[in-house]
Design a protein around this nucleic acid. Structure first.
Lengths: 114, 114
DNA sequence: GAATTATATAAGCCAAAAGTTATATTTGCT
DNA sequence: AGCAAATATAACTTTTGGCTTATATAATTC
């Protein structure tokens, strides 16, 4: 599953945020979402597990979850090409270059298709 | 709409990527997605418009789209708390601190709920 | 002003995602 | 062995998002 879709879910983001503080048991994580039933929590955890964003290990009946954030770098990488826009590095020249892009004909020349 | 959900859609991400190169007309954008019908493209553009990630202006019958990436900073901000993990700044001490988090009782003390 | 081009909106359909209840699995305790 | 605790899975329902076809709007050209 695509990491962008996984973090699109606010509950899952919040779960990752918890785990960024340190390991947590499934029960502790679930406790932070009183509005969700236990299976709902468990399913989100499964999504995170399957995506590789978290890891589990057992301690008695409990499952201890650990953050495994490396795949978040994919998002960071995608953002790279936009960062310049809010970095102040987008100066007048860059703005201008972006505006007068390669395609000099505003009227489309592509296949009609419609 | 939540910016995380908006960029979860691969087509919309690709559209933003196009606009990162410079302005494009709706037709040019649609041309880049031959598998999509015109209304499908138009709907994605509407989502991007409503979210504030792009802006439009008219030139005759054409609509010219411009990137407006400021809201992507929300994602960048969220990533901040994870960046240290792949920045190599997560050293042995930090890893240790994360592991022995505040909650000293592995056995949950929260309300049963289940 | 009628036809054409460019784009948007409406309405309905379908698939995927998330939630629910019920049940299974695993481990610990007495 | 039997029961309780912690968590996962199954089966089903509901919601939502994106797609499609059909139609509307707006500017352009003949």
């Amino acid at each position: 599953m695509d990491v962008f879709e996984i973090i699109a879910e606010p509950t899952r983001r919040a779960m990752l945020d918890m785990l960024a503080q340190g390991e947590r048991t499934a029960g502790e994580i679930g406790g932070a979402f009183p509005s969700l039933t236990q299976p709902a929590v468990s399913r989100h955890l499964k999504v995170l597990r399957d995506s590789g964003l978290v890891e589990v290990r057992s301690a008695a009946q409990q499952r201890i979850y650990t953050l495994r954030p490396e795949r978040l770098a994919e998002i960071d990488l995608w953002l790279d090409r936009y960062r310049r826009f809010w970095n102040g590095r987008l100066n007048a020249l860059e703005g201008h270059l972006a505006r007068i892009h390669d395609n000099s004909k505003p009227t489309s020349k592509r296949k009609p298709k419609q």
